[in-house]
Computed example of a mutant assay.
Amino acid sequence: MSIWTRIADAIAALARGEPLSVVFDRLRDSGTPEQSVGFTIAVLALGAKMAKADGTVTRDEVTAFRRIFTFPEGEETHAAHVFNLARQDVAGFDAYARKIARLFNPEARRICADDHHVLVDILEALFQIATADGSYHDGEDAFLTDVANTFGLDEACFRIVRSRLVEGAPRDPYDVLGLPRGATKDEARKAWKALVRDTHPDVMQSRGVPPEAMKLAERRMQLINEAWREISAKEAA
């Protein structure tokens, strides 16, 4: 059963008049939360809320979900339904972000730059949506900063994700690998291998990213490989 069919089932279970955000409560309280459904609805719902962060909703931002998810023929309607339900919901993005944080981080612990976690995956997906129109606005930056804070992601984690995905943002290869500037080549190699391992589709699926969202790994893998090559070349010079 595809993720889109499971999402349609989750939405169908809502009582008349219940908001989409109730889905997160039910996933959390089910005892065996359907993490991949939670991940997908989180990206679509927060993406819908963010789409107006720069004052407009562009076709590029709406279709940006294709940069993250694969859609079998006819399944786009399920994603569009989630997007529209989130836009219509009177709850603000902060309410969604808090519910998502409780679903994936029930202990409310701080998540640091070297902690590979599904909330970081969600933040990366939102950055891809934000930059889909070729620009990155102050409103989007403020929105994503607030989301990261609500998720419990530390400042270094936010800076690393932004440096990976925002063109024109300072992109130090050490930042991309989550390392301090003075890290040795051996430390960089170790960090690079850890990121490659944690970006493997099987590992990402184990923490809740659905197979339909494996495009998310492609951009991350490209950037961490580029960072490692840059550090290697610098050390060899």
Rank of each mutant, 00 (worst) to 15 (best):
T70A: 12
A12S: 09
A48H: 01
E107S: 09
H78G: 10
F39Q: 01
G47M: 06
T5S: 15
R171T: 15
K185W: 12
L216P: 01
D133W: 03
Q88H: 11
V22R: 09
E18G: 00
A95I: 10
F24T: 02
T5V: 15
D60R: 11
P19V: 04
W4C: 02
V161I: 13
L165V: 07
G55F: 09
A156Y: 09
Q88L: 11
R229P: 02
I160R: 15
A227V: 09
I11Y: 05
E76H: 13
E18W: 02
C112Y: 11
D89E: 09
V203E: 07
I129E: 05
A227D: 09
D115Y: 05
D146I: 06
E187R: 14
E76Y: 14
V62Y: 05
L14N: 05
A156W: 07
S36E: 13
K52Y: 15
S135K: 14
P19N: 05
L177P: 04
G139T: 11
E73S: 15
G152H: 02
K190L: 11
C157D: 06
A169R: 07
D89L: 04
V82R: 09
L179I: 13
E18P: 00
T32F: 12
T32L: 14
A86F: 00
S206D: 07
R6V: 06
Q88P: 01
L223W: 10
R219K: 10
I41A: 04
T70S: 14
I7C: 06
V62T: 03
F158W: 09
E230P: 02
A91T: 05
N84R: 11
F83Q: 01
K185G: 12
A80E: 13
T77W: 10
R98M: 13
A188K: 05
F39S: 01
I3R: 01
E140N: 05
R98E: 15
K185D: 13
M221K: 12
K193V: 05
E75M: 14
E18T: 02
E155S: 15
G152A: 06
F65R: 15
I11F: 06
P211E: 07
A95L: 08
A97W: 02
A169M: 09
D186I: 08
P106D: 10
I7M: 12
I111Y: 00
G139K: 06
V203Y: 00
T150I: 15
V43T: 10
V62K: 04
G134Q: 12
H81K: 14
R207D: 03
E167C: 07
D198A: 05
D121C: 01
R26T: 06
V82H: 08
P72S: 07
Q35F: 09
S135L: 14
A86R: 03
A142Y: 15
A86Q: 04
G38P: 03
G152K: 03
Y136W: 15
G134L: 13
A213S: 07
K234C: 09
A101D: 11
M1G: 12
